[in-house]
Design a protein around this nucleic acid. Structure first.
Length: 553
RNA sequence: UGGGGCGUCGCCAAGCGGUAAGGCACCGGAUUUUGAUUCCGGCAUUCCCAGGUUCGAUUCCUGGCGCCCCAGCCA
C-alpha cells in the first residue's frame, strides 16, 4: 500500500540519495521515522512519515518506525499505541515490530564507557546552573569545567555509581569532552547521560541514567544501518556532533539530512501547545476533530489518501514555509468528491408546503448516489407535500444574481420537481416561517419547455426526516499565525464548533462510523466513530463544498 | 557584534550557464437537476538588491540587505 500516488517532483533529498547511490557511498536506502512518544502525531509528522516511508518505498529500501524513548519523564505507552495506529492508518508498513531507542540502552551504555576510556567523556559534577554559566554565550566562549580532567578511573567509577542509582538526579552528568570554545554551542562538551530516577514505560526501573538525544539518535541510526537520517532543520547544528560520535565510536555512519518543517495557516504545530489545548480542555482531546493531529483529522473525516497527497503536493525544501490551509482542504475535497455518496440534509430548516400535492400521498423518488458514477447505485427519497428546505435558499427580496427561492420565483428541488413560491407565511414577529408553493408535476426527470429554471435546491420530506446531530467545525484559530498573537490562546476561534441538528433523508440513519457523505450543496460530513450510536449517527462536518455564491455575495 | 541556514508569482515549489514547470489561491468563460464536479483560458520580460565573469547568469564570483535556528541535565 501507500505509494500509489504519483511520484513527486524532484527535491534536494532525492538528489542527495541519487548521488550517494551513484558514488557507492551506500548501496541501498534505509530511513526511519523516529517519534518521541510524548504526544500524538500531527500533520507535520505526516510530512516526515510520507517522506521517510515514501523514499524507502521508492528506492526499494526500508523505513523503520523507531520510538525515541530516551526521556521517561515525558513518555507514555499510550502515546506509543496512538502513534502506531496513526502510522498504520496513513498506510505505511514498518515490518514486524516497531523499534525502540530503549532497546539499545545496554549498547549505548557500553559505548559511553568506551568514550570514557578513550578520554573523550567525563563525569561533571557542576550544578545545572553552573554548567549553564560556564557554557558561555553565543558570542563568548565557555570555560572548562573544574571536573573536566578527572582520571579515567574516577570517571568510570562515578559513571558506574550513576548507573547504580547511588546519586540523586542532577548531581552528576556524563559529558563528551570536545571543545568549550566551539562556536557551535552543541560542541561545548554536550551532555551524554543524565541521572533520572524515573520509571520508563518499557524498561521499568532497570535504568537510573538515560542517554540524551545527541548521544542516542545517531547511534540508533547506526545500529539499524540507516543510510539517510532525515530530520528537521533545527538539528542542522547537531550534525557535527552526530558525526563526532560515529567517528569516535568507529561505527557505521549514516548521513543526516535536514528539511524544513511544515507550518500550516490557522493552526499551531508545537506538541507543547497541542498538549496544553488538551489539558486545558480547549478541545475534547488529542483526537478532537479540530486538532491538526492525525487522529483528529481522521475523526474529522480527512481520508489518509488526502493527507498523503497533501504531503506530496507541498514538497520538501529547506526554506521556511507557511502552507495555506486551502491546500489541505483541496486535497480532502479532491478525494471525497470521488468517493463520497451524495445525500440530502437540511441544516437550517424552513418549512415548505406543496399546495397542489395530495396531503396523503407519498412518492418514492430515486436519486443517484453519485451523479458521475452510476455504478455507485441509487437510493430512495420519499417525497410528500410537507418539506424542509434551507433558510439560506430563500430571500424575500433577492438580489439580481440570486437564483434560488423568492416570492413568485421558481426553483428545482434536487432530484424532484420544480416548485414556485406562491405565498410567504410569517409569524407575529415578522419572521418567515413557511413557504407555500405549487409544484409543476410534469418536471420530474425533465425540464419544462419554454422556460428555464436555473436554481436547484436541496430538501427533505418533513414527514420522513431524521433528526441528526451535526457538529459544524471551523478553523480552531482566527489568526493565520496564532503564534504571532501575544498568547496563541487568545487567537482561538470561539466558534470553531457549533453543534446543531440536521433534518436528513431517512437513509442517513443507518450511516456507520467513519462513513463520509456529501450533503449536496452543503459539504462533506463524516460519521463520528467515537460518539455515534447504532441508528443514531453523529456527523462531523469534514469540509464545506466550494461556494462561489458566497464570494458573489 | 559567534556559528549554522534560507531568500524564484499572494502561498508552496521545479530549475544545477542557454533564455522562468506544476499545485493552491485568484480572475474570466463553457457544460451542469449540487452556484459542486468537469472543462477551457488568464495569471513572474523576471528570479532579495548592487556590482562582476560570460556570447549568454535564477543558475558562477564579490559585496550588501532581509528572515530563520542554536546558550535544556528536551527531542
Amino acid at each position: 500500500m501507500s505509494t500509489t500516488e504519483a511520484p513527486g517532483s524532484s527535491n534536494f533529498i532525492r538528489s542527495i540519495i541519487n548521488e550517494d547511490l551513484e558514488s557507492g557511498r551506500y548501496d541501498q536506502v534505509i530511513t526511519r521515522f523516529p517519534p518521541e512518544p510524548n504526544g500524538y502525531l500531527h500533520i507535520g509528522h505526516a510530512k516526515s512519515i510520507c517522506l521517510n516511508f515514501g523514499l524507502a518505498a521508492e528506492y526499494h529500501g526500508r523505513c523503520n518506525l523507531r520510538f525515541d524513548d530516551t526521556n521517561p519523564t515525558k513518555e507514555e505507552a499510550e502515546y506509543v499505541e496512538a502513534i502506531k495506529e496513526d502510522v498504520a492508518w496513513l498506510g505505511f508498513d514498518w515490518g514486524e515490530q516497531p523499534l525502540f531507542a530503549s532497546d539499545y540502552f545496554a549498547q549505548l551504555y557500553e559505548w559511553a564507557i568506551l568514550l570514557i576510556k578513550k578520554g573523550k567523556a567525563y563525569v561533571d559534577s557542576q550544578s545545572a546552573e553552573q554548567m549553564r554559566v560556564n557554557r558561555g554565550t553565543l558570542t563568548r566562549s565557555g570555560i572548562d569545567s573544574p571536573y573536566r580532567d578527572r582520571s579515567v578511573e574516577e570517571n568510570l567509577e562515578l559513571f558506574e555509581k550513576m548507573k547504580n542509582g547511588d546519586f540523586p538526579d542532577g548531581s552528576h552528568i556524563l559529558r563528551a569532552k570536545i571543545d568549550m570554545s566551539a562556536p557551535n554551542m552543541n560542541l561545548r562538551d554536550p551532555a551524554m547521560y543524565r541521572i533520572l530516577h524515573a520509571r520508563h514505560h518499557r524498561t521499568g526501573d532497570t535504568w537510573r541514567i538515560y542517554p540524551m538525544y545527541d548521544f542516542a539518535h545517531g547511534q540508533e541510526d547506526s545500529i539499524e544501518g540507516v543510510t539517510h537520517s532525515i530530520c528537521t532543520l533545527e538539528f542542522e547544528d547537531h550534525r557535527p556532533l552526530y558525526q563526532w560520535f560515529h567517528k569516535e565510536l568507529e561505527i557505521f555512519a549514516p548521513q543526516q539530512i535536514e528539511f524544513a518543517r511544515l507550518n500550516l495557516s490557522y493552526t499551531v504545530m508545537s506538541k507543547r501547545k497541542l498538549l496544553q489545548l488538551v489539558n486545558d480542555q480547549h478541545v475534547s482531546g488529542w483526537d478532537d476533530p479540530r486538532m491538526p493531529t492525525i487522529s483528529g483529522m481522521r475523526r474529522r473525516g480527512y481520508p489518509a489518501a488526502a493527507i498523503r497527497t497533501f504531503c506530496e503536493r507541498i514538497g520538501v525544501g529547506r526554506s521556511a514555509n507557511w502552507i495555506d490551509l486551502s491546500v489541505l482542504e483541496d486535497c480532502v475535497r479532491e478525494q471525497l468528491n470521488e468517493t463520497a455518496c451524495r445525500r440530502q440534509a437540511v441544516l437550517k430548516p424552513l418549512k415548505v408546503t406543496i399546495t397542489n400535492y395530495p396531503t396523503d400521498k407519498v412518492e418514492e423518488l430515486t436519486a443517484p448516489n453519485h451523479p458521475q458514477q452510476p455504478e455507485k447505485g441509487s437510493r430512495v427519497l420519499p417525497f410528500c407535500n410537507e418539506l424542509w428546505v434551507d433558510r439560506d435558499d430563500f430571500m424575500e427580496e433577492p438580489p439580481k444574481k440570486f437564483f434560488r427561492l423568492g416570492p413568485g420565483r421558481e426553483v428545482r428541488l434536487r432530484n424532484a420537481y420544480i416548485i414556485k413560491c406562491d405565498d410567504v407565511v410569517k409569524d407575529d414577529s415578522g419572521e418567515v416561517i413557511e413557504l407555500r408553493c405549487s409544484a409543476d408535476l410534469d418536471t420530474l426527470g425533465k425540464n419544462p419547455v419554454g422556460r428555464k429554471v436555473k436554481g436547484i435546491i436541496h430538501w427533505v420530506s418533513a414527514r420522513h426526516a431524521e433528526k441528526l446531530e451535526v457538529r459544524v467545525y471551523d478553523r480552531l484559530f482566527n489568526q493565520e499565525n496564532p503564534d504571532k498573537a501575544e498568547n496563541y490562546l487568545t487567537a482561538l476561534n470561539p466558534e470553531s464548533l457549533q453543534v446543531t441538528e440536521a433534518l436528513a433523508e431517512p437513509t442517513l440513519r443507518e450511516a456507520k462510523g467513519g462513513e463520509t457523505f456529501q450533503f449536496e450543496r452543503v459539504g462533506y460530513f463524516t460519521v463520528d466513530s467515537k460518539e455515534s450510536q447504532e441508528g443514531k449517527p453523529v456527523f462531523n462536518r469534514t469540509v464545506t463544498l466550494r461556494d462561489t455564491w458566497a464570494k458573489i455575495k
